[in-house]
Amino acid sequence: MRAFLAVFILCAAFLALVATARAEDPIDTTRAMIEAQIKAFLNDDVDAAYSYAAPGIKAIYPDKNVFFAMVKKSYEPVYHPGNYAFGRSRSIDNGAMIYHEVLISGRDGKDWTAIYQIARQPDGSYKINGVHIVPNTESKGI
C-alpha cells in the first residue's frame, strides 16, 4: 500500500511539473498575449493595447493615444479583424524572440497575414516588438 501511495505521489508531482512547464511555454504565452491585444483593440481599450508594446515601440510612440491612432490607420486588419487564426510559430534563441503568423480576414473581406515579432524582456516577460502585415493574395476562399 505504501509503495502504491509513493508511486501515486510521484506521478502527481510529475504531472504538476509537466503542466507548469506547458503553462510557461513561450509560444502559448505569447499567443495568449496577441489575442489579448487584439481583444483590447476590438474593445477600443487604449491602455490594455498599449501595455503589450515593447519598449522600442513605446519609444517611437510615447503617447498611447498616438500609438492607438497609428494602429487604427496603418494596421486596420489587426485593429478590427473580422476573424483570425494562428498559423505557424517559431521560437528563436530558446524563446528570446518569438514569431507568430496570424491569418486575418478583414471586415472588408480581404485576407491578410500578420507576422508578430515578440521579444523577451530582461524581466522574463514578453512584449510585442513589431507587426508586419501583408495582403494574402493566394487565398482561394471556401
Rank of each mutant, 00 (worst) to 15 (best):
L5A: 12
A6Y: 04
V7K: 07
V7N: 00
F8Q: 12
L10R: 06
C11G: 13
C11I: 07
V18P: 08
A19H: 10
A19P: 05
R22Y: 08
R22T: 11
R22I: 07
D25H: 02
I27Y: 00
T29Q: 00
R31F: 03
A32I: 05
M33S: 12
I34V: 14
E35L: 07
E35F: 00
A40H: 09
F41A: 07
F41N: 01
D44F: 06
V46R: 06
Y50A: 06
S51N: 09
Y52E: 12
A53E: 01
A54Q: 01
A54F: 06
A54R: 02
G56A: 10
G56N: 04
K58C: 03
A59F: 04
Y61N: 11
P62M: 05
D63F: 02
D63P: 05
K64W: 01
V66D: 02
V66Q: 09
F67S: 03
F68P: 04
F68E: 04
V71M: 13
K73C: 04
S74K: 12
E76I: 11
P77N: 11
V78E: 09
V78I: 14
Y79L: 11
H80M: 13
G82E: 14
G82I: 12
N83V: 10
N83E: 14
N83D: 15
Y84F: 13
A85H: 09
G87E: 12
R88M: 05
S89L: 01
R90T: 15
S91D: 14
S91H: 03
I92T: 10
I92A: 11
A96D: 04
M97I: 15
M97F: 08
Y99T: 14
E101N: 06
V102E: 15
L103C: 08
L103G: 10
L103E: 13
L103R: 15
I104C: 01
G106Y: 03
D108G: 10
K110Q: 15
D111S: 11
I115S: 06
I115H: 09
Y116E: 10
Q117L: 07
A119Y: 07
A119S: 12
Q121I: 00
Q121E: 05
P122D: 04
P122Q: 03
G124H: 00
G124C: 04
G124F: 03
G124V: 01
K127I: 00
N129A: 13
N129G: 01
G130A: 02
G130N: 03
G130D: 00
V131Q: 01
V134Q: 14
P135E: 13
P135L: 13
P135W: 03
P135S: 15
G141Y: 04
G141E: 10
G141I: 02
G141F: 03
G141H: 09
I142D: 10
